[in-house]
């Protein structure tokens, strides 16, 4: 019996030793491929962007705008480095990220993206809800069953409306349609509509870094937690409506 107790305490010490060492270190966790250190040495953050309104706007070869682009600019300022923008497709960027040729990829990526297994996703910094909106003066509704509802053809909401028994109408634009509208909550607000309680889906927005680069992702998440609170993102989303 005594020797078993002995091994248990060895285990306990074994556990604590690296823990104490770890907290004593300046940067913990570390990057296996030293991404964060290299960003700082290089003085450049290599960011891959995919155009996706309102998160990343603009075209190659210009400087991108949008919420995520401006957040990343602030992040680069915090790291005291410059940004090297790379325009391209999500596929290209994720491939590059996998091989440490980029440091961050942004463009309205959500957590349900299947690339999550190949690259590192930050925790969602913003959760947006796709909801149904109605005109401010119109009747209040609690269900879309049997109703005609307008939506953008590429919104990914068609089947969700179908499930709820609505008759979805695909529209190229949602301004001044004479029926309830299904869209992201911020877009409903931008359209001047009133949000109902009918939530169709949630989208959790993340940014991507190379897989396992834990110092970099911790730093980026820290930044997002402080500078990209839901309230602030919503303000940015609302601010865009004046553009």
């Amino acid at each position: 019996m005594r020797e078993r107790y002995g091994s248990f305490w060895y285990a306990a010490v074994f556990f604590m030793l690296p823990v104490l060492l770890g907290t004593g270190c300046e940067r913990f966790p570390r990057d296996p491929q030293h991404s964060l250190k290299q960003v700082q040495e290089r003085g450049k953050l290599r960011v891959g962007v995919v155009s996706h309104k309102p998160w990343v706007t603009g075209n190659a070869p210009g400087k991108p705008g949008g919420i995520e682009a401006s957040l990343l600019e602030a992040f680069a300022r915090e790291l005291e480095v410059e940004i090297e923008w790379h325009w391209g497709s999500a596929q290209e960027h994720f491939e590059a990220l996998k091989h440490y040729e980029l440091d961050v990829v942004a463009g309205g990526i959500t957590r349900s993206n299947p690339w999550r297994k190949e690259v590192g996703f930050t925790s969602p910094y913003y959760v947006s809800h796709a909801v149904v909106g109605v005109p401010q003066s119109g009747e209040r509704i609690s269900s879309v069953e049997g109703r005609a509802v307008a939506l953008r053809p590429d919104s990914g909401l068609h089947h969700l409306l179908k499930e709820r028994g609505a008759r979805p109408f695909k529209r190229g634009y949602l301004e001044n349609v004479d029926m309830p509208v299904a869209a992201e909550a911020w877009e409903i607000e931008r359209l001047g509509l009133r949000k109902t309680d009918i939530t169709l889906t949630k989208r959790r927005y993340v940014m991507a870094v190379p897989s396992g680069e834990n110092a970099l992702i911790m730093r980026l998440e820290n930044f997002l937690m402080q500078k990209a609170s839901p309230g602030r993102v919503e303000k940015l989303l609302a601010g865009r409506s004046q553009e």
Binding site: P32, Q33, S123, S211, G212, I217, M225
Partner: peptide, 19 residues
């Protein structure tokens, strides 16, 4: 060569300021 990504602790939609 799967590099595990261990970032901030995240639970039920909240991120905690801890690895």
């Amino acid at each position: 060569q799967h590099h595990p990504t261990l970032a901030h602790f995240h639970l039920f939609g909240n991120s905690w300021d801890i690895w």
